[in-house]
Design a protein around this nucleic acid. Structure first.
Lengths: 233, 233, 233, 233
DNA sequence: GATGAATGAGGCTTCATTCAT
DNA sequence: TATGAATGAAGCCTCATTCAT
């Protein structure tokens, strides 16, 4: 019996490229390095992705496809809830996806801060789509009288800022703050901060957002201790 | 009378490099491009900065020296005030500095998200110093009973996130949100959001932060109109 | 039948580099020139030798490996003979090797007169090994009572001088003396001079060194004529 | 009173250039290095010598002028003596000059092993003149019946080899043989070897060459000890 | 599928030199 | 006499890519 290994080489390239792009940036990484880390012949990169740029586009596309899949699922799964709860769940799903693909995520956010043709293309497709999703949620909330009447821009900048910070400052957190954004603790705390934000900034009347999986409570003494151990508090 | 032109060529290089690094990233920019944009011979980059890396280090150093000068001034000028007012003024000064040097700023924030030796050095010097400054303000506030007892890490990540977002998402704001973060309107609004954050998250008792220069009022109808024109609201 | 062409490009580079290094010196030759003379793309030098310095090291290593192979063979083949005969045969082999690779040889001798790290490394390996070989021969000769008790240093400097002169003064011989050190005549005469040196300086009792291949006799009238033709005598 | 310092800067350049050309070769040395070692502005090299090549030519010319001055003096001073004694004294003077300028000497010998236009020019002038001098001495010796009838070429190659070896193998002697060719001991021994060469190869009847200054005797026990100390014997 | 050879373009840096002062 | 600014050319090397196998 022959076990078909679905494209071992291709996956090795993807993993190596993600790691290197993440740490050194796209332009700071050569395909030579990628091939070496992947333990693969250089020509394979051209073979599978046509070019270095093709590899970049593949990774970004892969990132956004996964992102929207997760976000769309979250929307479907939370149709029935209050709009603030839905927003919470959507952002939580998005953030979870990002944490599961943190290397890819940091790299994509960094790359999107450039002014290139590729970036402009991404903005006019994926980011427009994302804007549509989040602004729709906002508008529904406003219409239903759940949310304050804040501008789409303010809302979106806040959301994007919230989603990107753990990744763009990942290295800073580790080196300067000695605090791992990858830890479960951080992620719980970060989500509860978002809950706070929804309540204090967005909602007209405070509501109780239920969060089954993650029953993190800021006053939970166990966690307090964990934080203390981290030497952060 | 002799007019001293302080090193025209060097400044032309600095300006060109800042613009290109800002848009294309450090690794995405060649010294040939810089020399061409600066309308200067390529060898001058070596002459003035030794190497491309030397130019990078010069710009980053220049950025942080200006940053700390502004921040230190703000601290000196606001010694007498409430600590929450002081925090507000310091952040405002920092943000003003960044807006005045927005190209340099975006570039520095992006570069700091990499894992390089240079970045590690910067973190262990400039960012440690910055951490010391902001965490001192936080601790004083906590001791005086003005601030909630939140962790240094949470505080710093919020501050860094606040300071960086307008720059890292500058292009996104323009292309996707059609909203210029460079506008006076945005900057006023952004500062008033920070005032809100201090009051709602940080301060135990809400206080009235006075801000002479910037008497921006969210309900000011003129500005509302301006926003409408921007097509954002 | 498949004819294996052992790396045509690599060999073309080697030949071109040898010729140019020989005439212009290592530092006086650019890899552009080498590539041009070899009729090969410049990047192949990096591809096959990593760097220009790598090419240099390759050539020097190649030279010494060939040199010691020849010398070791000569030693093995002449174990049974008198030590003075053995010395003669070893030096003859070495000199023959050098004449067969005269371009490489001149270049290596010239390069070894520099004070570089590479030269120091070569000295502590290859030249130490060479010293060991020749000084062993000397010591055996002294112990057996065949050779005078002269110092290792004097002996080695004489030997090195003898081996290098035809190459370091090759150009001088041609231009100033109109005498080709590459000619069979020169080489025969040079070896017979060495025979003389062994007899007059080194050996306590004059012996008759037999030299099958090279039955050159200084009084041979044919050769005298050849010399006359050369316009040297 | 103003003391005229005869061109301090020029001399600093000459010294630095000699040292660096000696160790790294002409092509291996940049004018930047020279200027730095001389602690002088780069432009001064162009100012005093027009170009790097001009500096090279200046040094080589300087070398040969000094060389011929010494040789001519030796010839004048020893007109009355036996021709073999004269030869001895001339070579001794030449060698002394070379030892006094050993840096320059090694560098010149190395450079002359190249095939450049400059070298060809030097050969057709200085080296032709040198050839004339030494071959005249040889011919006079032959005519007078003092010397064997050997070819000019053989004679000149031997002489050149003798004059150059201590310099071209200077580094080799130090590193491999642990023997300083700069020492007075070496130079004495080397001259007495030359005396031997004259007697055994060149002269028909052995003569006693008198050498006032340098009464070195191979059997002198003091020197034997000195040699022993050097660890060479 | 995967590879090693080979390439042209362009990377950064250093070169020797010039010129106004 | 001496210098700092500035330059064009060339240095070596690495880049991403192609192609025959």
């Amino acid at each position: 019996m022959i076990v078909v290994e679905t494209n071992k080489t291709k996956n090795k390239i993807i993993d190596a490229a993600t790691a290197l792009f993440n740490n050194q940036g796209y332009d700071g990484t050569s395909i030579r390095e990628i091939a070496k880390l992947a333990d693969v012949n250089i020509a394979n990169i051209s073979y599978y992705f046509n070019s270095k740029k093709g590899l970049l586009e593949y990774l970004i596309t892969k990132y956004f496809e996964g992102y929207f899949q997760r976000v769309d699922e979250a929307i479907s799964d939370n149709r029935e809830k209050h709009i603030s709860e839905m927003l919470y769940c959507v952002i939580k799903s998005a953030l979870n996806y990002q944490f599961e693909n943190s290397g890819l995520t940091r790299f994509v956010y960094r790359e999107l801060s450039l002014d290139t043709i590729l970036v402009r293309e991404i903005m006019s497709t994926y980011l427009m789509r994302e804007k549509y999703i989040y602004s729709s949620i906002l508008n529904v909330g406003i219409k239903r009288g759940e949310f304050e009447d804040i501008s789409t821009s303010s809302f979106l900048i806040s959301v994007k800022s919230f989603l990107s910070t753990p990744f763009l400052f990942q290295h800073y957190s580790q080196e300067v703050l000695q605090w791992s954004v990858q830890s479960h603790l951080f992620q719980s705390k970060y989500m509860s901060d978002f809950k706070l934000w929804i309540n204090r900034y967005l909602c007209i009347n405070r509501i109780q957002i239920k969060d089954e999986e993650n029953s993190y409570d800021v006053n939970d003494s166990t966690l307090e201790n964990e934080i203390a151990v981290c030497g952060v508090v």
